[in-house]
Design a protein around this nucleic acid. Sequence first.
DNA 1: TTCAGCAGGATTGTTAACAATTATGTCAAC
DNA 2: GTTGACATAATTGTTAACAATCCTGCTGAA
Lengths: 239, 239
Amino acid sequence: MTLPGPNMEQLSTAEEVAEEQIVDRIFEAVIEQRLPPGTKLSESALCEVFGVGRMRIRRSLLLLASREVVELQSNRGAFVARPTAEQAREVFEARQAIEPNVARMAAKRATAEEIATLARHLELEFQAHGSGNRRDAIRLSGQFHTMLAQIAGNGVMLRMIKELITRTSLIIGIYGAPGVTNCRDDDHAELIDALRQHDPARASDIMAEHLRHIEERVDLTVKPGSGVDLVSVFGRRDM
Amino acid sequence: MTLPGPNMEQLSTAEEVAEEQIVDRIFEAVIEQRLPPGTKLSESALCEVFGVGRMRIRRSLLLLASREVVELQSNRGAFVARPTAEQAREVFEARQAIEPNVARMAAKRATAEEIATLARHLELEFQAHGSGNRRDAIRLSGQFHTMLAQIAGNGVMLRMIKELITRTSLIIGIYGAPGVTNCRDDDHAELIDALRQHDPARASDIMAEHLRHIEERVDLTVKPGSGVDLVSVFGRRDM
DNA sequence: TTCAGCAGGATTGTTAACAATTATGTCAAC
DNA sequence: GTTGACATAATTGTTAACAATCCTGCTGAA
């Protein structure tokens, strides 16, 4: 199986970095929580980081904003999004509505090869957990969900899930207990088992339960968290 | 009913047309099939139509492309998307995965006022159908689905559904029998009834069946349709 | 000390000109 | 009449300069 994967990194030989790559890399940084909610994303800094003109950066930021992963504030710049409690609720609800179906579809369509790839991926997850490599663990557990969507064979839903997973990382960063990771690996193992048995109903159930577990680990009762931007809190008259 | 909606039309003291409005209007034109698949969207023309600078237009086109409603071809411009049969399958599958849940959520949360608004909307649909006003009929039946998502109270899923409905219009434009409309009003009536009885399971079932009806009316077996762009069919070496 | 006001610098938003590519029309050759 | 090459026009992509806004730090008076 090839599974192009969310990060193909470096196919630009002499090519310039495209918007899609910039977007993907920022997505990944948000997922790994290297870019905490509220972080300022200044254009000039991004231009240097990616070695790209300002136009490309502005287009990338617009794309990220359209996925609600960054927030554009007029005349102030781009910031990593800080989902509200209400938005967090909506993200979890959307995942509950969509991802069990993805698991169901994946269980119907998964080939032996795909399942083997998933199993190898799970092994990486365990290793990252065991060695205490938090960032890898977070990234890998997120990738597990996108791989599932790829196996499900639906590009539209894959795109949706990428967005939801990224926003979930932001939500956990704001409302989650410190040190808590996104997913339990045990659930992932069970999911692979359901895929192996081609049991769509069970895969769906496990995913629903899995998402409930994730949701249980966050506390959406008011917690503005760190780095509150008072300007955006109290607003300005010309906004 | 207010139905806050995703676009609260704030700001713009000088009342310049914002990107979001341009995007929404193009979405609407696509839904009403006034912009058939493959239509060239030239920047200069759009600048005149909306009375806006080129930058705004380019940003709007990028946003539309990120929703896969327009297709950007390098150095050739923007075209209304022409979904492939595979993409069409994915769109229908995504709707089947998402919208029954939306109907379920709406049935749980709908207030009497919201149901009354839906009923009034359905009346408009009937009128448009009766008077043979095709465009209004199409637009209104699409709006019914977005209203349902608004009642469901989930902005994330509302945005997804807007995209899926718009792309469905493109699909019907390409693969649908001529003169066939998007939705049967009867199903909408049944849905309202399920909402009135606060029967989530029934609402979900009706929606699933409704979507099956829509899907049945298209024939995805190869039919390039009108206005085929030979360049994109046979490709070019630098793409 | 504290706070209002006011430069100066930094960052974002916009416009216009320029470069690159594609589309179109003409004309000669066959 | 058709075909191919070429020149011209039109359109898109990019860059750079300019304008507007915001942030920072200073000064000075209460």
